[in-house]
Computed example of a mutant assay.
Amino acid sequence: MTVNPIAGTSDPAPHPHATAEEVEAAYQDTKLAQVLYHDWEAETYDDKWSISYDERCIEYARGRFDKAVPQADLPYGRALELGCGTGFFLLNLMQSGIAEKGSVTDLSPGMVKVALRNAENLGLDVDGRVADAETIPYDDDTFDLVVGHAVLHHIPDVEKSLREVLRVLKPGGRFVFAGEPSTVGDFYARWLSRATWAAATNVTRLPGLGQWRRTQEELDESSRAAALEAVVDIHTFDPAHLEDIARSAGGEDVEAVTEEFAAAMLGWPVRTFEAAVPPGRLGWSWARFAFGGYKRLTWLDENVLQRFVPRSFFYNVLITGAKPQG
């Protein structure tokens, strides 16, 4: 449980074991779905998505920031991560020198708990709040930087949230959001994932391949999580439309860039296959293949494909903008 530094009250405790009635209700209440799904995932989320706080992910997070803001005046004083999850984006950015002090917020108490634990383990100066991204519980002109990774597509009213982001930013402060799914990218990623899941879970039924199959209980739980995931993933974005939303919210110097086309074609099947087999079964050779393949295809995307493939075809959208000075 984290202490609310503004109101002096306590944030709600994590709730990782939802009842069947709560899950059923969540199908009609996207914010309840967000809490249940992310509290459910919080303690295993880093492992599921191969998240770490070492050089590999520090380099990845910093690369996303530098792609969105190539010439930033660093370090920022105080940064906020919206929809922090386990803290992946902000904590790795802080380790790379982007910001000196941080705050994390998420609608899920479980995610805030894990993010704060990760920050403490890393020795970073970070506080946290359980908070709705549409009503950020900090005063006007508090932060020099607001960041988020794979969060905007979970928020019902994106423009309202960006207005809140601009409110809590200091004049001239900047926001950077990365990891948002493009509309075209989400279409092919979902089909690739479904096909991979079907292939992996059916092939491992064959004689002699049982050791590659998770227990039916684990597979059923993954299927239930995936069903709820479909409720929490609300939006996909055309890059130009996301720019329009950010400008309408009051941002200036707004620009969206995209990445991962060939890399996404490998990345989504790889992640899905990893989720379908028992933990630890694949080993270091697989990890080297997956990461090495991703790096090579990222090079292809950045140095070749971005020259002629429309930006809306790339999977990840990054958006940045600033609060007007006056």
Score class of each variant (00 low, 15 high):
15 H>S: 15
221 E>L: 12
326 G>D: 15
307 R>T: 06
245 I>E: 13
149 H>N: 06
179 G>H: 03
81 E>C: 13
42 A>R: 01
96 S>K: 06
241 H>N: 12
257 V>L: 04
162 L>T: 04
93 L>I: 11
317 V>E: 00
97 G>T: 14
262 A>H: 02
102 G>M: 08
287 A>E: 09
94 M>E: 08
32 L>Y: 13
24 E>R: 14
176 V>S: 06
46 D>M: 05
100 E>R: 10
90 L>V: 09
23 V>G: 01
162 L>E: 03
129 R>S: 13
129 R>L: 15
321 G>N: 12
296 R>F: 03
65 F>R: 00
256 A>G: 08
227 A>H: 05
19 T>G: 09
9 T>I: 08
27 Y>F: 15
28 Q>H: 15
164 E>V: 04
265 M>N: 04
281 R>I: 04
11 D>G: 12
12 P>E: 10
76 Y>T: 01
111 M>H: 07
184 V>K: 06
53 Y>Q: 08
178 A>I: 05
33 A>L: 03
97 G>L: 13
219 L>H: 07
135 T>N: 15
26 A>E: 05
156 P>T: 06
133 A>C: 12
164 E>K: 10
166 L>V: 13
278 P>M: 09
323 K>A: 11
247 R>D: 00
172 G>V: 15
59 E>H: 13
261 F>D: 03
141 D>Y: 09
167 R>Q: 08
194 R>D: 09
175 F>S: 01
227 A>R: 11
107 L>K: 04
325 Q>A: 15
173 G>V: 04
